[in-house]
Design a binder for these strands. Structure first.
Lengths: 148, 148
DNA sequence: AACCAATGTTGGTCTCACCAACGTATCACG
DNA sequence: CGTGATACGTTGGTGAGACCAACATTGGTT
């Protein structure tokens, strides 16, 4: 309907639509903070909700693969937001734990993320936002979060 | 709710959910065709629906920026799916037109895209799929597709 | 004629998903 | 107990895609 819009073939593909929404989210995010803060936020949020975890476990829960988790954790460690120590019970594992500064950083990022969220979903009323959240969640939980 | 799942903070962010769905779509796509076929599909679909367009116009309608459009069109041209000629009315513009082979290629890709769609949305019944499509569309049309 | 804007093009950065390989550590099993 | 399979972290590399910057050509304006 929108004259300068995408063709119907694309507008009917959820995969394409989701990609565009995701890109818009990234764009709005970048306007407020460095882009890499998104993965920082994901890892810190996971640690706060589940407690200390190994890197592989982090990846499993977030759907990131372990190569990338490594880089994110290293960055967080360098910034003092996270601590890494080897698990005494299984010395292959690195236990990743959030620091006080990390929790603070998480709160800051969370506030910005909610701003982005509001900007992204302006067109939806609270009911529609809830529906969207539920539908996307349904799609996600129906697929195993494979990478490890 | 899913024990080995993402934290609530992320599951409540539409931007994050959309990104994950998009990644899943890309993964399912890659299982059926080369990944780059996605942009080929987008461009060919746009040409079929709107007719011949300049590269900038293509980017405007798809939300791609003109640098990337250039690469995609070049690839399509090398594969014989598209023809490029300079607009006689405005010799700055390249008019991009689909070839017969391009239209055929579009049909092939469309069939594969629908397969991906079905795999991605298994968890949703037809009604829910429609709702999801409408909600995402609403989000997208509320934001100008800026890059040019 | 002089200036500004649009277009295509090239080249480069950054995030992120992925693949491959390696060393260390653990575990299961014969 | 030893041996082989497996898991984990780490490094290095590929490729798509969103960006930014710069340039030459062309068109429009004044």
């Amino acid at each position: 309907m929108t004259d300068p819009g995408a063709p119907a073939l694309l507008r009917n593909l959820a995969s394409w639509q989701a990609g565009r929404v995701s890109t818009l989210g990234a764009r709005f995010t970048a306007a407020r903070m460095p882009l890499e803060a998104r993965s920082d936020f994901a890892v810190l949020a996971t640690l706060r909700e589940y407690g200390e975890l190994s890197q592989t476990e982090l990846g499993r829960r977030l759907g990131l693969d372990r190569n990338n988790v490594n880089g994110i954790v290293t960055r967080l460690e360098n910034n003092g937001h996270v601590e890494r120590r080897t698990d005494p019970a299984d010395r292959r594992r690195n236990i990743v734990a959030s620091t006080a500064a990390g929790l603070q950083h998480l709160d800051d990022l969370h506030a910005l993320a909610l701003d982005v969220q509001n900007e992204l979903l302006v067109a939806l009323d609270p009911d529609e936002r809830h529906q969207l959240r539920v539908l996307l969640e349904k799609v996600l939980t129906s697929h195993p979060a494979q990478p490890a």
